[in-house]
Design a protein around this nucleic acid. Sequence first.
DNA 1: AATTTATATTAGCCCACGCTTACGCATTGT
DNA 2: ACAATGCGTAAGCGTGGGCTAATATAAATT
Lengths: 111, 111
Amino acid sequence: MTNLDVALKAIAEPRRRDILRLVQTIELPAGEIAAHFDVTRPAISQHLRVLKEARLIAERREGTRRLYRASPEGLAEVREFLEGFWAEHLGLLKEAVESEQRRSAHDYSAN
Amino acid sequence: MTNLDVALKAIAEPRRRDILRLVQTIELPAGEIAAHFDVTRPAISQHLRVLKEARLIAERREGTRRLYRASPEGLAEVREFLEGFWAEHLGLLKEAVESEQRRSAHDYSAN
DNA sequence: AATTTATATTAGCCCACGCTTACGCATTGT
DNA sequence: ACAATGCGTAAGCGTGGGCTAATATAAATT
C-alpha cells in the first residue's frame, strides 16, 4: 500500500476525522480523546494507531499517558493528488508541470 | 453520509483513483476504461457509479455508449478539510489555538 | 421485430474493517 | 514487591465493500 493510500483510507473514516479535529490545536491523552466519543477506549486506540501509521498524528509518552497531536505530514501526497486533479481541470496542467519542475521539491509543510 | 464522506470514500479506493486519472484529460466510454484493468466490466461500472455519485466524474450518453470525464466538483469539501488542516499547522489560526489551550491542556509545540 | 452492441444491475462470495469484551503491558505510587 | 493507573492488543462478531457470473436494459442496426 502506498502512502497516499494509507493517508486517504485513514481520513476516509468519519470518526478518525473527528479525532484529528480534536487534536488539531491541542495535545491530548488517549483517555481524554476517548471521553469525547460514544465508543469504547480500545476502539479509539485502534483509530489512533491507524492515524499514527498514516503519520497524521504524533505520539509522545509522558509517564503512563500517551499524548497525541495532529501532524499533517502524511497528507503531503493527498495534497499533490488533489492539486493535480484541479490543475488538470483548469487547463493549467502545462504551466503547473513546468513550475513544479522549476522549483523541484519545495513544500510548505510546517515542520 | 456527508458529501465530504462520500468523496473521501470514493477516492480512498486505489482503482477509483486510477479511473480518475484515466479520464482526467480525455473523455472515455465505459468499455475503454474497463479495458485498462484486469477486472471485469461490471466491477468498473460499479466504480463509475460511486465516482458519479461523489460528483467526481460526469456522464454523457452518446448512442449506446456512456462517456465519462473527470469533474472535480465533489472534491470541494475535501479541499476545505485539508486546507484547514494545513492552515492550523502553519500557525495561521493562532487565536483559535490559544483559546483552545485556555480551555483544557497545555504545551502545544509550535514553531 | 429481432439482433447486436454497449453498459448497467443483481445475487452471492470473500475479505477488510470498526466495534466490544477480555486480557496484557508499562509506568507510577505505596 | 504489589497494587493501581493509563493504554494497547487479541479474538470474535457483524456489517460493508469489491469482485465475478448471470441477467437486464437501452439504443442502434438489420
